[in-house]
Design a protein around this nucleic acid. Structure first.
Lengths: 212, 212
DNA sequence: ATTACTAACCGTCGAGTAC
DNA sequence: TGTACTCGACGGTTAGTAA
């Protein structure tokens, strides 16, 4: 069983570098007393899941490895519930970037998808054989991003679905009035996917939809 | 905090369909008494994380949703923990080219890694300090390329990991029976990397592993 | 066989407190 | 400030056992 504290420290980034964390802080976060938090930290230190020096906490490789193992196991189990598209990168017309730069959308993406999107979409033309999967996907309940008005212009609502490209958390977006046909998926992510994954027009990609 | 039992049931596939699970089985798996397991199952049922009917257990959508949330959080945190090897190009013995020319492998590479590899591998000797990173890498879930038989010969399975050299998407391959020691990584790509990146024996390279 | 109750146990929790 | 010790009390755990 992986302790709550490990997940907390992971969220704090204590796997990268030692992070300053007080016992009261830990206590607050996991809902126990300062004393209990202190004791638990000592236990974790003894079992070599973390190291402490000068009030700073650092997760050991062993602990991270354990977490990775759990994640892998769970992902394997959850697999099969997912829809997978094969496709290739196609050029966009830069319109996605315009929409993503709108605060009205960006804030909602951050809130609902838990990442703030890079200002640009990756357009993926899916293989003919996978087009029916698109119908399947659209039958699922989307994560909604509401429309808004700004400067006399109306920005329509956007329906999104979480997905992953090469393990990177992304989202497929379906704007109310899409300029794309049924063959193209518009994908947003925290990163510039072309750069991060070394993609160019024509690059083959696999878009794995993960359930919300 | 997500209970051990939820992860156990997930591994059993109790999110797809009700699964037959006994309290003793659960007890054994999580290292408690049968009585405790029984109690915990009752608690989980009360908190609507699972449903039980006729000795079968079924995870609720709520529980699965919770797990997905955790997984997403952890993956986001782990992001950027990417492993990077420093190394230098070394001469190969041309064996890689022979393997890659085998249709049985090439097709799978195309499918699983989404590029059809150039018939030749780049061998990179990693720096001594980075050898432990190799262990770390091997703990991650590889992209599998299955073995096959052809003309009475057996070709073993290959475990691969996505990586990038100077932004070019590549893969590190670990054949089941490798001729290389722990110091050498075998890298494949769509391109002739020596040509494309102007590499010669001894050239320093950075191999960046990207999450699968 | 399996599940789940009761009862006694023991371990964990947190208040108080020293450092 | 913040950490970690002691110790009384509470709650979770297990053995025994009934259904």
């Amino acid at each position: 069983m992986i302790s709550d504290i490990i997940f907390l420290l992971l969220r704090k980034g204590a796997h990268h570098e030692p992070k300053r964390v007080t016992t009261s802080e830990v206590a607050e976060s996991i809902g126990v007393s300062q004393q209990t938090a202190s004791r638990k930290l000592i236990q974790l230190e003894k079992s070599r899941q973390l190291e402490r020096t000068g009030g700073k906490v650092f997760l050991t490789k062993e602990a991270i490895s354990e977490v990775r193992k759990l994640i892998r196991e769970v992902m394997d189990s959850l697999e099969g519930t997912s829809i997978t598209f094969m496709g290739s990168v196609v050029a966009g017309i830069g319109e996605g970037a315009y929409y993503l730069s709108q605060k009205g959308y960006a804030d909602q993406f951050s809130k609902n998808l838990s990442f703030k999107p890079f200002a640009g979409t990756l357009n993926v033309a899916i293989e003919d054989g996978d087009i029916e999967k698109r119908i399947l996907l659209r039958q699922q309940k989307p994560i909604m991003v509401n429309g808004f008005r700004k400067g006399g212009r109306t920005f329509g609502k956007i329906e999104t679905y979480r997905c992953a490209l090469s393990g990177i958390p992304c989202a497929i977006v379906f704007p109310e009035r899409s300029v794309h046909g049924l063959r193209v998926l518009e994908i947003i992510s925290q990163f510039n996917l072309r750069k991060k994954l070394g993609l160019a027009d024509g690059s083959k990609v696999v878009v794995e939809v993960v359930a919300n």
